[in-house]
């Protein structure tokens, strides 16, 4: 009775680990089950030992069936047959050359072909390298294809958008899209300094919004607001602000023209001033290093001036504000 109670107690304890008595199983089925369950564990333990300590191990386990002629074997770095040959012939097995600090790919091994004099071996190495390269290229191509497919799925109207944007720009300029040459257009980005230092005599014609956004001078030119500008001085009609997508569609060469607040001469002038004489009142005029700039309009500027009266109607001319 007492023994039955003990077995009941052990049967109740399902979750906890309990030690089993190491003795031969009675039935054939129990033996085969124990063998098939424990064999993989044994081999995995052997694999761990090989991996951690660099030892060469061969484990041989026969089948539990008496009549079957099966021997299960596991080996570490070398093949089981190699280890058996080494043992039978009293030879040492090949050394395991694994350096944990520099665990690299086989083709990164520095002594891959230096000590090799055999042409056939070199050919084999070359063949392996070629195959590896091919595999890598195939894998990369597959990845690229999958990326391109996913991108095309995300924005299928991408190509049509670029062409439409270019035609829209052309229509804004009053030109045919085919005749619109990228060389006639220029992207100019302005910061605060350049805007303040622009003179009326400058040849670049610009078109600003009513409330333009100007970025601080320290920011990069890509973040600054871009304006489409024509190089020809006679072409003043249609100028528009352009977005980045339209830039990509047009494939225009982007140039950034930023003019500093002061020229080098101006800076040297301000640096050379004494602290007492801040505005240079007590110095002669000939000491001034910076020549005075002539801001008078040139002939080129006169060409740009338009007579407004041509465009005004007679009724507008009669209006007292124009008289």
């Amino acid at each position: 009775m007492q023994s039955s109670n003990v077995t009941d107690c052990t049967m109740r304890k399902r979750g906890t680990k309990r030690k089993i008595e190491i003795e031969k199983r009675m039935t054939k089925q129990q033996r085969s089950v124990a063998c098939s369950k424990r064999r993989p564990t044994l081999f995995s333990k052997a694999a761990d030992l090989c991996l951690l300590s660099g030892a060469n191990i061969a484990v041989f386990v026969t089948s539990p069936d008496e009549n079957s002629d099966v021997v299960y074997s596991f080996s570490g770095y070398s093949h089981a047959s190699e280890i058996v040959d080494c043992y039978l012939n009293n030879k040492s097995p090949p050394k395991t050359t694994i350096n944990p600090e520099s665990a690299k790919f086989w083709w990164e091994e520095p002594d891959l072909y230096r000590d090799c004099d055999d042409l056939s071996e070199l050919r084999i190495i070359e063949d392996r390298l070629m195959r590896t390269k091919k595999h890598l290229m195939d894998y990369l191509e597959k990845k690229e294809k999958s990326h391109s497919v996913s991108k095309s799925d995300q924005n299928p109207n991408n190509d049509s958008g670029s062409s439409s944007s270019s035609s829209q720009i052309a229509s804004d300029f009053g030109q045919n899209p085919s005749t619109l040459s990228p060389s006639s257009l220029k992207i100019v980005s302005f910061d605060q300094n350049s805007y303040s230092s622009l003179e009326p005599s400058s040849q670049v014609t610009t078109c600003f919004d009513q409330n333009p956004v100007f970025s601080v001078g320290s920011e990069s030119s890509s973040d600054q607001s871009r304006y489409l500008v024509n190089e020809d001085s006679g072409f003043v009609d249609g100028l528009l602000c352009e977005t980045e997508e339209e830039n990509n569609g047009m494939r225009l060469p982007q140039e950034t023209q930023t003019q500093p607040m002061f020229t080098e001469e101006d800076q040297s002038f301000w640096e050379n001033l004494d602290v007492d004489d801040v505005f240079g009142l007590f110095k002669d005029d000939n000491n001034l290093e910076v020549p005075l700039q002539d801001h008078s309009s040139t002939n080129e500027d006169d060409e740009l001036l338009i007579d407004i009266s041509e465009y005004l109607s007679e009724e507008a001319m009669e209006c007292p504000c124009f008289s």
Binding site: I22, S32, A34, L42, V59, T62, P64, V84
Partner: peptide, 16 residues
Amino acid sequence: ELTVLCGLPACAIIYS
């Protein structure tokens, strides 16, 4: 343990 439980011969060769 495997040899005792299953009653089968097994061996190991270890080079270190």
